[in-house]
Design a protein around this nucleic acid. Structure first.
Lengths: 213, 213
DNA sequence: CTTAATATGTTAAAATAATATCAAGGTGAG
DNA sequence: CTCACCTTGATATTATTTTAACATATTAAG
């Protein structure tokens, strides 16, 4: 195992660097220093260098980092060097938004299908992505080796959907449903928790006023 | 200032406790111990007690915490003791989803309006929330003392929208646009970064395979 | 009333993460 | 070629956050 417990925050920052590198490469920038990356990202240059140092030495002293080379390295670190297929479970507004969002923004990740149970929605297309009935999930997951399910169903449906997802063989759920999911051992759930984020944001929005507890 | 640099993670966990407490109160549970809260949330009991201890002593030794009392305390800590008004900027699928999501899930926060520039959308309603033209933002923000803007416009629009938001007097932006926002001093931006979250999730989804960097 | 059991809240220790320092490698001007 | 200047990457330091330990308070049973 080459990775000795990398902090979660490091991985997130890598994903940020990736986005910046994409922009730089699109603008034909070939070399970038940690200091310049610092200005783009808001993280300190030291932190950027240390983050990268967890995985190797990708820069050239006196010069900086080659943008394409670094991008490839980060892609490989994250696991995006080969295309990752995902599915959306729940083709409501949020599911549609995420499907479109993903298709337009992320060349490494492919939404291979969206699933729903509503006969009105099943069979429609979100740009290129077909909305299928949930009963076809296992078939699609096996065919495309789907790694991640994004869960965007109503709360009442979430329990059923989790069962479907687990039965299909997916091990990783990105949960947008504002409730705790109960999953078997070995299934990794990442919660989006938008309302929790909003609440904590409100804390900072109202921080200035005098509080007595 | 009663709060001496509380960790961000503490505030997020408070919002989680709040959600659990809502459920408990709905089920007429009056007392909960930190150990039981631990089982519900996945955080350790010690951490829960320490989080609360940042703000005071809300429990009873030998017994636990009164759910309603603790809920009120957390509401006040976060700043949700008086209703917080927010607006959605960008009434696309994501904006619609977040408007509905919020209305159904969060009694402390009110989406008072959504804004868009598309004449096809302006004038429509998302449940009870009217979609207005962006030109009315300042008026609405002043009328309802709006604290937070949720930004869900396309990337190309984000720069203009930030200007509108800042001009309206809002100091706090919850940004769902996958780009860095450039804002004046004093404006707090919280990034949702869904694609970054997804990428970091994929790291964990593919972690098992042998990686050579 | 006393004692055992339970749970909080405070204080201390450990683990983790961020920041600073600096040697080594690399570039380019003169 | 040499020197001055950059920038990385490794190491050390500091700060932060989590975990653990324990004294204090409460309840209930005998």
């Amino acid at each position: 195992m080459p990775n000795k417990n990398i902090p979660k925050s490091v991985i997130k920052r890598l994903a940020v660097y990736l986005r910046i590198l994409d922009n730089l490469i699109a603008n034909d920038v070939e070399i970038i220093s940690s200091r310049e990356l610092s200005e783009e990202t808001g993280f300190t240059a030291e932190q950027i260098r240390k983050d990268l140092a967890y995985f190797g030495a990708f820069g050239t002293r006196g010069t900086g980092y080659n943008t394409s080379f670094l991008k490839d390295k980060i892609l490989r670190i994250i696991g995006l060097d080969e295309q990752t297929n995902i599915v959306i479970v729940g083709a409501g507004h949020l599911g549609i938004a995420l499907t479109r969002y993903n298709i337009t923004k992320n060349p490494y990740v492919q939404v291979v299908a969206a699933f729903d149970i509503d006969p009105e929605v099943v069979g429609q297309y979100i740009i290129d992505t077909e909305v299928m009935h949930v009963s076809r999930m296992k078939e699609i997951v096996e065919k495309y080796a789907v790694k991640v399910a994004i869960l965007t169903v109503p709360i009442e449906q979430s329990h059923n959907s989790v069962e479907d997802i687990v039965a299909s063989g997916i091990k990783c759920i990105y949960n947008f449903v504002p409730t705790k999911l109960y999953v078997p051992e070995g299934i990794y759930v990442h919660n989006a928790d938008l309302s929790i984020e909003l609440n904590s944001l409100i804390y900072y929005a109202t921080e200035s006023k005098n509080k007595v507890f």
